[in-house]
Simulated scan of single mutants.
Amino acid sequence: MRQNLIYFLLSLPILIMLAWFYFDKRKVKQRELKRTRLRAQPLAPEYVHILQTEFALYARLPSDLQRTLAGHMQVFLDEKDILGRGDLEVTDTIRVLIAAQACLLILNRPGNYYPGFRSILVYPETYVANSTHNDGMLQVTATSTRAGESWQRGPVILAWDHVLQGARDSRDGHNVVMHEFAHKLDEENAAMDGLPLLPTAEQYQQWSEVLNAEFIVQQQKLAEGADDVIDSYGATSPAEFFAVVTETFFEKPHQLGHCHPKLYEQFKLCYLLDPKAWFEG
């Protein structure tokens, strides 16, 4: 009897692990079935109208990518909570434009719809945020106005006026939704360090070589005050470099490809897209 009890106690962790594996696998399967159903559903006509009138890049997409984007948006809107702050009422236009711009980054990328967080907080316009840092023995608190931010393993925060401007203007190289959701792709690889998950293992070495070299160039240009198609904010850290180049890749693809061809090729392999084709003609 005692020996049987010992055997049972020794095997209990294994039984628990097997049960957890079974139910987790079942949960994942159910989630993927639901996602498949959602992707097959057409967007509501009023949502399509919002895309056609307010999201400039949507009209440039080939029809097959428009359908893919619509399917990803259905999943995104089902799995993310978009919440108003500062008395902002969340409308269909707000939900559709945030979803569309965020899902553009994952059109062809294998992935899991920005895992690790659920909430997107939206302010009517640029908002004031506090930040703290240590200066020797002192802890210094500073305030700054922001158009968006992405908390690691936490929510995305956006200013609606910048979201709308980013959707309407597809050529200025600035898009707050793409920027903050690029950070979310970045953090899927454990740390927010400018290295997202790449489609194949072979890409990592070349990605590191090209981006490290280009980042050094941007730091030099920032120090010299020289202009570049890549916004100078990208030179502040590898994480910001990845997010800023993402904006440039989607909104100024020809300029990026001309000035930084190796960088453009790496981002084309990362996103499995070639936005140059969208702007021709």
Rank of each mutant, 00 (worst) to 15 (best):
P124S: 06
A223V: 05
V90A: 02
V90M: 05
N4V: 02
S119Q: 15
K262R: 13
V244Q: 15
A243S: 15
F241V: 02
Y7D: 10
S11Y: 07
H49V: 02
H254K: 13
L104N: 06
E32S: 08
P155A: 13
Q205P: 00
L195H: 07
D193A: 12
H49A: 15
R153Q: 13
Y114P: 07
I94L: 11
I230W: 07
L256Q: 11
Q255R: 15
Y264A: 06
N134D: 04
T145L: 09
L211Y: 01
L263W: 03
F249M: 12
P42H: 01
Q139T: 11
H258Y: 09
E265D: 10
P124I: 05
A223N: 13
A277T: 14
S144W: 02
L18W: 06
Y7P: 00
A159Q: 09
R67Y: 01
E79Y: 07
M137R: 04
V229R: 07
Q203Y: 05
R146M: 10
R95V: 03
P42E: 03
T145S: 08
E180D: 13
G154P: 04
S144E: 12
V176D: 10
P110F: 14
F76I: 06
I50L: 15
S150A: 15
P275A: 10
E54W: 00
I16E: 01
L38V: 02
C259K: 11
E79V: 12
T132F: 07
L185F: 14
K34H: 13
A56N: 01
N134H: 05
G111S: 14
L256C: 11
A190Y: 09
R37P: 00
S208K: 14
M73A: 05
L256I: 11
L69N: 05
W20E: 06
K184H: 14
N175L: 09
L198M: 13
L61I: 06
Y204N: 02
L138R: 14
E32C: 00
R146C: 02
D161F: 00
T200F: 02
G173A: 13
F279I: 02
Q266Y: 02
L5Y: 09
K80E: 04
L65A: 00
A182P: 12
G225Q: 07
G225F: 05
Q266R: 13
N189W: 03
V229P: 05
V28E: 14
D172V: 12
P42K: 03
V210K: 04
P45F: 01
F21N: 08
V163Y: 04
V217E: 13
L269F: 01
G148H: 01
A56Y: 01
A223K: 14
A182I: 11
Q219F: 07
L97G: 04
V229A: 08
G173C: 15
F23L: 15
V122R: 01
R153D: 09
G166Q: 08
P110C: 11
R67P: 00
N212G: 08
T91F: 03
P253L: 09
V177T: 12
R85L: 10
R67W: 01
E214R: 08
G111Y: 10
T132N: 05
L57H: 01
G71Y: 06
Q139W: 02
K80S: 03
F241E: 07
S144R: 08
E54K: 07
S232A: 15
N212Q: 14
Q152K: 10
A201I: 04
N175M: 10
D135E: 12
E79H: 02
R153T: 06
Q3D: 11
P13N: 07
Q139R: 08
Q74R: 10
K80N: 03
